[in-house]
Nucleic acid binder design. Structure first.
Lengths: 220, 220
DNA sequence: GGGGAAATTAAGGCAAACTTAAGATTCCGG
DNA sequence: CCGGAATCTTAAGTTTGCCTTAATTTCCCC
């Protein structure tokens, strides 16, 4: 998943970024509302995490601008515990969820998974496609009940495809989900990971649409 | 919206019920998990508010049973502030959101609006012409329910014609749809692809208007 | 029956995708 | 903080499938 973090506190931002990357997400970071808007328009993230206590402009205002410009990404706002009215405003201004500071990173991650699901197909942390079960919380993948060991990138790739089984994702779209701004790849990395995934699962599970991209197929 | 509240604390339940009804929602109330499951199956609510601290059975378990029985309503769970692991479990078990107790009723209402807004959209990417179904998302084409394997150009051609069934498109117009500027083609390519399409589907599906172009015909 | 339009056919060429392996990088335990 | 293991990226070589071309045949309308 591609995530944009708009947060001025450097150390907090670093912590969140690291945790998210560890989960296999592509993370872009903006330190101000203005910068955040620019990045949101350029990178088209799946999710935006927005701190309401920004220095250059009000967080709510930033959110308003984003929605006005047609950014329809899911938005989670971060706010201080006692700012109830701000939370309510935020939700009504187009945020999808909020988290009160301070929070545990595990909680943030769990919330993200919930949000991810709300817009996607599956209702629980498990996505099933054919005889393959993908657990987005534990990062476990089962093929006919047996565990398959995947690396981080392999898992991210599989998750991206599994969010909408049957839907085709181009190489470019897949790269966008895996790599943040500034760490783009310039090779056939995606091809290679797809190849390795096919070896670990089974070849027909991931189908190639020549000239278009890849999609998950039906069970064998 | 039809809402099911599963909450054992009578006075809290009364307060929430009143507030929700005030907003124009239909509210059912269950005091136990067992009762909640029965009501969920009977009433098919749009939203379920589930307290994790239930007397007769664990709230997480209740949620599991609901999802297992195919209840796909949006679920918001209520939990005590310090029960982090419970929240995380709940979200991963298929809840869409949670709220920590104690909370202000305004906050609950704002959350509901956010949830409501999210569950809209998603239009189908399918075009149907006669007994042929064209799925633009998966590039799948079904003839009487059976998959027909098309190449990229064949698919583009078919989609172009299917966008306006019955309308006549000239070769030139079709070429414009298939080829971007700078890669024009100088032969009877379109004819050839049309021919191959007819072989894969059935000849009468694509009709020739002599001297003008092609159009999609009615089912066989 | 004649001429132009459309259909048919087959083959060569080319770009997309696959495979492999080596070098770079990251991760993790001590 | 270091060294080995796992993983990731790059790039080159190979394979594959498709697209285009063009020559030939069939069809339709005047």
């Amino acid at each position: 998943m591609r995530i944009l973090l708009i947060e001025d506190d450097e150390s907090l931002a670093d912590g969140i970024t690291t945790a998210l990357r560890h989960q296999g997400h592509a993370v872009d970071h903006a330190g101000t509302g203005r910068e955040g808007i620019a990045l949101a328009l350029a990178a088209r993230p799946d999710l935006i995490i927005l701190d309401l206590g920004l220095p250059d402009q009000d967080g709510i205002e930033t959110l308003g601008v984003l929605r006005h410009r047609g950014v329809d990404s899911t938005v989670m706002i971060l706010t201080a515990r006692d700012q109830l009215s701000a939370k309510v405003q935020g939700l009504d201004a187009g945020a999808d969820d909020y988290l009160t500071k301070p929070f545990a990173v595990d909680e943030l991650l769990a919330r993200l998974r919930a949000l991810e699901r709300r817009s996607g197909a599956s209702r629980s942390a498990e996505i099933q496609v054919g005889n393959v079960v993908i657990n987005t919380a534990s990062h476990e993948v089962l093929l006919n009940g047996e565990a398959v060991k995947l690396s981080r990138r392999e898992f991210s790739l599989l998750r991206a495809l599994a969010e909408r089984p049957g839907h085709i994702l181009s190489r470019e779209q897949l790269e966008d989900k895996l790599y943040s701004w500034g760490e783009e790849v310039a090779s056939n990395t995606v091809d290679v990971h797809i190849h390795n995934l096919r070896k670990k699962i089974y070849p027909e599970f991931i189908q190639t649409i020549r000239g278009v991209g890849y999609k998950l197929g039906p069970g064998r």
